[in-house]
Design a protein around this nucleic acid. Structure first.
Lengths: 252, 252
DNA sequence: AAGTGGTCTAGACCACTGC
DNA sequence: CAGTGGTCTAGACCACTTA
């Protein structure tokens, strides 16, 4: 079928290979129903656990999702393009539109209840912010939802001496968001560094982002500095990787 | 133990939660041995499959790796920082050092046998390169290895009319690499766009990068343009996400 | 040779979906 | 209510690692 000399590959791997090949060959399309556990048991004459294991391979590759009581389906990938360079430019947030709205456009973006709290700075954030341990920061915690699907978590840390008793401590920071408020305080960010990595989510993130198994997250740590080189905000974002492509422009 | 009101979580999930909590609490460190299948069966009084399933959760989260015949171990994360902005600057490759060497420094980088082939341009690459279907491109295919571990695959596409009969078609492109050669031809790249996404690897990538289960890959598609706006190279990179953090600098 | 993870079978019960 | 995926048990054999 699939290949030629596949010898010692285990049974559930061979079944997974068959299905993967079929998906790649276009025999199944996005959202199509795949053969389920019972079907695989019959077709290949294997035990339930073996059929499950084959499907687990595809789930963990992010190729399939299973819906209890219903079936197993081909997973789709319809990403949001997030433009890294330019999206943080002064014109953007200076114009009173917030960064998020400009990038998802017509896809019905929502922001879930924003919680704003004062807290002692976590060790890793503190060293990045360049402030001493034990200092207080303002944490803005929020979740972005597009078309009913949660796609991103964001935790933004601002030193208390900048944020105290400003709209940065309000759930609604007003037009232009936190960066515009920092600018009004004379600490508008002019330089950013984004550090990007990918990893599998922990169970808390799986819940918060409603991630099916086999979905990595992208973690972006964005550090914002003002004209004087002071770090004025650290923003830790966790993205559903099946929803995003990040674009960065670089010049030589 | 772990929490308070965990009720209907399945047995293998509860076991996984215990182990995860223990790892996070620092009871196990990087590379430490975790309780294996047999140990879990005894400790929790569950069947082998259930113990396996618990360990599978941790593996798929990238927290643990298992070594057949030996045991299950806490996985480590020691990333290479890849500096997106600046690393492509003229000074870097202009100075005759290649990009790769500058970023991994003392970590014994190697490049596996580079294959260079002429081929018909794949559809997706063609549309990105802005050349008509059926055109010929030069494909440079290579694998990077650090400290004996493969960490990155890269496939670089250059239009044939630029690369034909130049050192771009040699395995060794000489000092400064492909970009320096393009520059000598009057097509030195001045603008780059990197598009970044994360996903789970297919089995071919798992093999080529020797990835344990639960390891996502980062896919970077870099498009390089010369002064005239012509796309002179498309480079598709596949990175082991457990080996990389990508840094991008952005200014407002 | 003992221990470990990897694979597989056969049979069972449950919770949920969709008709 | 029938079908589906999710979970679990009990027992078995194999290949590999370690000593």
């Amino acid at each position: 079928m699939t290949g030629s000399g596949e010898a010692k590959r285990s049974v559930h791997h061979r079944i997974a290979d068959d299905l993967r090949a079929a998906i790649r060959a276009g025999e199944y399309h996005d959202g199509d129903r795949l053969p389920g556990e019972n079907e695989i048991m019959k077709r290949y004459g294997v035990a339930r656990v073996t059929a499950r294991e084959a499907l687990a391979v595809l789930r963990n590759e992010g190729l399939a999702v299973s819906r209890r009581g219903s079936g197993v389906y081909v997973r789709l990938f319809a990403p949001i393009r997030r433009h890294g360079s330019g999206r943080l430019s002064r014109e953007r947030w200076g114009s009173g539109r917030d960064v998020w709205a400009t990038e998802v456009q017509e896809r019905r973006p929502e922001v879930n209840p924003i919680t704003v709290t004062r807290m002692e700075v976590p060790a890793d954030i503190g060293s990045t912010l360049g402030i001493e341990a034990g200092s207080t920061v303002v944490l803005r915690d929020r979740r972005y939802v597009v078309e009913g699907r949660p796609v991103q978590l964001a935790r933004s840390y601002v030193p208390l001496d900048l944020a105290a008793d400003t709209r940065i401590e309000d759930a609604d920071t007003g037009p232009g968001g936190v960066y515009a408020r920092l600018d009004e305080l004379g600490h508008g960010p002019v330089r950013f560094r984004e550090s990007v990595r990918a990893r599998m989510p922990g169970p808390e993130e799986q819940t918060a982002l409603e991630l099916p198994p086999g979905t990595p997250v992208i973690e972006i740590v964005r550090v914002a500095q003002d004209e004087d080189g002071r770090t004025v905000e650290v923003n830790v974002m966790t993205l559903d990787s099946s929803c995003y492509v990040l674009d960065y422009d670089v010049s030589a």
